[in-house]
Amino acid sequence: MSATTTTTNGAGAARATDPAGVVEAFLAAMEAGDVDAAVALLDDDIAYTNVSLPTIHGRRGVERLARLVFDRLGMHFRVVVHGIAVEGDVVLTERTDALGLGRFEQRFWVCGRFEVRDGRITVWRDYFDWADITVSLLRGALGAVVPALNRRWPSGG
C-alpha cells in the first residue's frame, strides 16, 4: 500500500488524497458495493473507458452504471491488485477483477490507468483482453454449476 495523506470531506470522514491512496480507496469502495463512497472519489467530469467500448463521461453517468450493476442487478465485485505504480497524478494497476451474480462469478485480468487530481479520479481507463473475458465468462458459467471449473482466485484476495 502507498503512503496516504488524508483530509476530511464535508461529512467529516477522512479520505485519501495521494493518487495511489485514492485509487485504492475507490477499488475498496467498489468491492464493498458502496456506490456512494466510490462516487465521492470521482471528479464531476470523469472519463471512464473500458478500452474498445464507449466512454462514459461525468460522475452521474458512472454512478448510474454502478447503481445498475450493484443496486438493481445485485452484482458483486472483487479485486486483487497485483501491482500498482505511480508517476505524478497517474496510477497504473495490474489486477484480477471479478463480477458476480449469485453462484456465477467471472474472473479476469485488467490493467487500469487512473488520473487523480485534488483527491478525485478524473480518468479511469481499463484495458483487458476480449479472449480472456470470453474464457472467464464461460468458466464462470460452468463454475456456477461445478465450482472447480472456475478460474482460481489469486492468493491475497
Rank of each mutant, 00 (worst) to 15 (best):
R67P: 05
L41P: 00
V86H: 01
A14S: 13
T122F: 03
G156V: 02
A29G: 07
V51L: 10
L92G: 14
N9M: 07
L137E: 04
D71I: 04
L53R: 14
I84A: 15
W130V: 12
I46C: 01
N50C: 03
R152F: 02
E105K: 03
W153M: 07
Y127L: 14
D43G: 06
R78S: 09
V146N: 03
R59W: 04
V39I: 09
L142D: 01
F26K: 00
I84H: 09
I133N: 13
R117P: 03
M1V: 00
W109T: 12
P54M: 08
D129E: 06
L137I: 01
R113N: 04
S136T: 02
E115R: 13
A148R: 14
F104Q: 06
A144F: 01
L42M: 12
W124T: 00
T6K: 14
L138W: 15
E105R: 07
A29W: 06
R151M: 02
D89H: 08
G143P: 01
W130Q: 15
R125H: 14
L142R: 01
R107M: 07
G61I: 08
L27E: 09
D45H: 11
Q106M: 12
H82E: 12
L65F: 13
A20C: 14
F114D: 03
I121S: 00
D34L: 04
D118M: 06
R113S: 09
G112I: 05
V90C: 06
G156I: 03
L53C: 08
G12T: 05
P154G: 11
L149S: 02
F70Y: 14
L42E: 01
E105W: 01
V23Y: 04
R120Y: 03
D97Y: 11
A13K: 13
M75T: 09
R125A: 08
G112K: 04
S155R: 14
Y48N: 07
F114H: 11
G83D: 15
G143L: 00
P19L: 06
G156Q: 07
M75L: 11
F104Y: 13
G61H: 08
